[in-house]
Computed example of a mutant assay.
Amino acid sequence: MVPFFAQCASRHLPPWKEPTMDKKTLILTQVIMTFMMAVTMSGIMSLIALGPTALWLSEWPKAALIAWPFAFVLGAIAFPVASRMANLIIRR
């Protein structure tokens, strides 16, 4: 049995035939991805600012909840721009 990632890497489709995500999957992926990024980045940055203290642990969830909507909106704007830039670099 061939691993999934090997199957994906082995097929070389032209750009116009590459599979695309349906809108529901794309939005859910964006929600999950931006949540993970907001939690991770707010945790790291607040840890650097406050140090590993009880205050850090109490402030981290608040910072993550504030960061998440911003990450979602900015991700929705940045993803198409980054995708176009990547395609230009690769020359698709």
Rank of each mutant, 00 (worst) to 15 (best):
Met1Tyr: 15
Met1Asn: 14
Val2Thr: 15
Val2Ser: 11
Pro3Ala: 10
Pro3Leu: 09
Pro3Ile: 11
Phe4Cys: 08
Phe4Pro: 01
Phe4Tyr: 14
Phe4Lys: 09
Phe5Ile: 14
Ala6Trp: 11
Ala6His: 11
Ala6Lys: 14
Ala6Met: 09
Gln7Ser: 14
Gln7Arg: 15
Cys8Thr: 14
Cys8Tyr: 11
Cys8Arg: 14
Ala9Gln: 13
Ser10Asn: 05
Ser10Pro: 00
Arg11Ile: 12
Arg11Asp: 02
His12Leu: 13
His12Lys: 15
Leu13Cys: 09
Pro14His: 05
Pro14Glu: 03
Pro15Thr: 07
Pro15His: 04
Trp16Ala: 03
Lys17Gln: 06
Lys17His: 04
Lys17Gly: 00
Glu18Asp: 02
Pro19Arg: 14
Pro19Asp: 04
Thr20Ser: 05
Met21Ser: 05
Asp22Ala: 08
Asp22Arg: 14
Asp22Trp: 12
Lys23Gly: 12
Lys24Trp: 08
Lys24Cys: 05
Lys24Ser: 07
Lys24Phe: 05
Thr25Glu: 13
Thr25Ala: 14
Thr25Ser: 15
Leu26Trp: 12
Leu26Pro: 01
Leu28Phe: 04
Leu28Gln: 07
Thr29Pro: 00
Thr29Ala: 12
Thr29Cys: 04
Gln30Met: 02
Val31Cys: 11
Val31Ile: 15
Val31Lys: 04
Met33Pro: 00
Phe35Cys: 09
Met37Lys: 11
Val39Trp: 04
Val39Cys: 02
Val39Pro: 00
Val39Ala: 04
Thr40His: 02
Thr40Asn: 03
Met41Asp: 01
Met41Phe: 06
Met41Ser: 03
Ser42Val: 12
Gly43Cys: 01
Met45Trp: 07
Ser46Cys: 08
Ser46Asp: 06
Ser46Ile: 04
Leu47Thr: 06
Ala49Thr: 10
Ala49Leu: 10
Gly51Cys: 03
Gly51Gln: 06
Gly51Ala: 07
Pro52Ala: 15
Pro52Asn: 14
Thr53Ser: 14
Ala54Val: 04
Leu55Trp: 04
Trp56Asn: 07
Trp56Gln: 09
Trp56Asp: 02
Leu57Ile: 10
Leu57Ser: 10
Ser58Lys: 15
Ser58Trp: 10
Ser58Val: 13
Ser58Gln: 15
Glu59Lys: 14
Trp60His: 02
Trp60Asp: 01
Lys62Tyr: 03
Lys62Glu: 02
Ala64Thr: 08
Leu65Trp: 08
Ile66Lys: 09
Ala67Pro: 01
Ala67Met: 06
Pro69Lys: 06
Pro69Asn: 04
Phe70Trp: 02
Ala71Asn: 02
Gly75Pro: 07
Gly75Lys: 11
Gly75Asn: 12
Gly75Asp: 10
Gly75Val: 12
Ala76Thr: 13
Ile77Ser: 06
Ile77Cys: 07
Ala78Val: 15
Phe79Met: 08
Ala82Trp: 08
Ser83Cys: 05
Ser83Gln: 09
Met85Cys: 11
Ala86Met: 09
Ala86Lys: 06
Leu88Thr: 10
Leu88Ser: 13
Leu88Glu: 08
Ile90Gly: 04
Ile90Asn: 11
Arg91His: 10
